[in-house]
């Protein structure tokens, strides 16, 4: 039972689908795309074909400003599986984007002492595979 297979050592990577391909393509250009609804004005994260507020299909992709604040956070010390062992400790963030939506992300760097609720952060994309860049965040130096 102590055999560790190759699979369990690899981090889960997103597999873009019909809903999300454009989102992951945007990140490769450094853009965090949000969907803006032409009909009701709702702004949503993550990508899907219909507006979650009014079900309209008239959604426009627009790049987020990349500015947001930390709604909550948790520093992970115990890795969720062997693939994350090298990374601990790392901070997972719940970010409130300037445009309204909330998202999960992680902190660039390990300045955990500077972490706090409701403080500003900004987007920094991190390439984790040939075709995948993750939308991570760093603390805004004020």
């Amino acid at each position: 039972m102590n055999k560790t297979s190759k699979d369990s050592l690899e981090k889960p990577l997103p597999t873009p689908d019909g809903d999300s391909q454009v989102f992951w393509d945007g990140l490769k250009k450094g853009e965090l795309l949000l969907q803006h609804c032409d009909d009701c004005g709702h702004v949503q994260y993550y990508q899907q074909r219909i507006c979650r507020q009014c079900q309209s299909v008239n959604l426009q992709h627009k790049a987020a400003s990349g500015r947001g604040t930390i709604h909550s956070f948790s520093v992970v010390y115990r890795a969720p599986g062997p693939a994350f062992k090298e990374d601990v400790p790392y901070a997972v963030l719940l970010i409130d984007l300037e445009e309204g939506p909330r998202m999960i992300s992680s902190l660039v760097g390990k300045d955990f002492n500077a972490l706090d609720f409701d403080i500003p952060v900004k987007l920094k994309t991190i390439r984790v595979a040939d075709e995948i860049c993750l939308p991570c965040f760093e603390l805004t130096i004020s």
Binding site: M1, N2, K3, T4, S5, D7, S8, K11, P12, L13, P14, T15, P16, D17, S20, Y45, Y46, V76, A79, P80, G81, P82, A83, F84, D87, Y90, V92, M103, I104, S105, S106, V128, I132, L134, C136
Partner: peptide, 24 residues
């Protein structure tokens, strides 16, 4: 097995918008 444990820990979160950030 280690693979089963990994699955138990990670598969319950979304593989696109949550798990890549290492969120158990």
């Amino acid at each position: 097995t280690p693979d089963m444990a990994m699955r138990a820990m990670t598969e319950s979160r979304d593989q696109q918008y949550e798990m890549p950030f290492g969120i158990p």
